[in-house]
């Protein structure tokens, strides 16, 4: 037996649409219209193959909540394999639990409430990135774009929590680090070094 077949992520990647809950759509974009637009932009940058980002839209439900949803009809017409960022975003949207995405005045982080998660995305470049940008082993600066940070928080920590997987701390070998590096690879960016706190 291939042990990878027991891995929920790999299973989801192979058939992400299967995870869509018709009553789900549970990526909530919070805050002002400007904030929601920024949150959407950052999240969709992880759907990195051509045409994928255009498959998502926002809707407002009866409670006034703005949800990020997948246009399933359009998605069915987009043939071929998808990026892992896309698949993870689809899986997150299809969850029966909720990820609320909001803007934060400082650094980005994810917090948890029962089965749900709140991903806070830093409004500006966090102080740490201004003072000490990420560097590789020979001192070159490694880009740390907002979209990758959104992917780290939402598709890493928050999505894993929705799947019942605890990954609450970053560090070498953490699942969220691995996910961030998958997203970086797809977007042609160098990996996040293991020794970056």
């Amino acid at each position: 037996m291939n042990p990878q077949s027991l891995n929920k992520h790999v299973y989801a990647y192979n058939n992400p649409l299967r995870y869509i809950d018709p009553d789900g759509h549970e990526v909530v974009l919070a805050g002002s219209a400007e904030d929601q637009s920024e949150e959407k932009k950052r999240l969709l940058s992880n759907a990195s193959k051509k045409g994928e980002a255009a498959l998502f839209r926002t809707t407002t439900d009866k409670n006034g909540k703005t949800n990020l949803v997948l246009d399933k009809a359009a998605a069915a017409n987009l043939k071929g394999t998808h990026s892992q960022g896309y698949n993870m975003l689809v899986q997150t949207i299809g969850s029966k639990n909720t990820v609320t995405v909001q803007m934060s005045n400082f650094d980005s982080q994810t917090s948890y409430q029962a089965g749900n998660a709140i991903a806070s995305l830093g409004r500006n470049v966090a102080g740490i990135d201004r003072v000490a940008p990420m560097r590789d082993s020979v001192g070159n600066i490694i880009p740390n774009p907002f979209g990758i940070i959104a992917g780290h928080e939402v598709l890493g920590h928050a999505r894993l929590h929705l799947l019942g997987i605890s990954d609450y701390a970053d560090g070498p070998g953490s699942k969220t680090f691995q996910i961030e590096n998958q997203l970086r690879k797809e977007q042609g960016l160098p990996p996040r070094p293991d020794d970056v706190p």
């Binding site: 982080q109 994810t110 966090a126 990135d129 000490a132 706190p197």
Partner: peptide, 10 residues
């Protein structure tokens, strides 16, 4: 109290 930030500075 809260979860670790995306990056914690040295």
């Amino acid at each position: 109290p809260g979860c670790p930030p995306n990056r914690f500075p040295p």
